[in-house]
Design a protein around this nucleic acid. Structure first.
Lengths: 112, 112
DNA sequence: AATATACGTAGGGAATATCCTACGTGTCAA
DNA sequence: TTGACACGTAGGATATTCCCTACGTATATT
């Protein structure tokens, strides 16, 4: 599949989104990351593999640890994919706002 | 799971991303949408169901057709989720730009 | 050298995803 | 009313996901 699909598929799992969120604070070891989840460490390793293959994280060996680092570039594709839709929800919000403004107006169409 | 997870999971399929893209041009019937894919119409219906349950599309019956309309609001959650990562790729791009600027600079560190 | 630590991978089981064909329902057209 | 059309759903086959435990490898410690 395309790289784009890899990224979206990687983000489909709440565990993997949580992992990327943890890496916002800087590189972490696998044990460190795994300690935040109820699941086994090997399972976390597998999630990290998915993220690695999507290009969302990189690993760097440090002694017997492996530090995983966030690589956010692939998220640009998501952001770019999102662009044409922004107009839609802004339009919708603008419409909502108009509606609320009318509602707030105590002078309900009594003006000439 | 959370609504957020529904949205990310819905977007994980290239077929469903393509469906939402088609709906950018306005509401369309199921047959119309299905004609853009190699798969059977019932399968497209199932994909539309996933999108519906994620709140990404709505349907409106019109005669014997059902017009599907894009509902982009749930994508705001994706956009919001993306926000803390933007800094990362901008930083990376800024670093890259610096590097290119230096490369372009014919006066390689010969200044006092 | 022997042991402990940090990690990845193998292999397997259960759940879910993704496609299909067959069929049922509601709507329009003749 | 009969037939065609548009669609959703049922049921099933296969692939993939997601979790586990067991195990192998490399590095550090003693």
């Amino acid at each position: 599949m395309t790289a784009e699909t890899d990224v979206f598929a990687a983000l489909a799992s709440p565990v993997r989104r949580e992992l990327t969120a943890l890496l916002l604070g800087g590189p972490r070891s696998v044990n460190d990351l795994a300690s935040h989840f109820a699941m086994s460490r090997p399972s976390v390793s597998e999630h990290l593999k998915v993220l690695r293959e999507a290009g969302l994280v990189s690993e760097q060996r440090s002694g017997r640890q492996r530090l995983y680092r966030l690589e956010a570039e692939p998220l640009m594709e998501v952001s770019r994919w999102l662009t044409p839709y922004e107009r839609f929800w802004r339009d919708r919000l603008a419409g909502l706002r108009e509606l609320l403004d009318e509602e707030d107006d105590s002078d309900h169409g009594t003006r000439p």
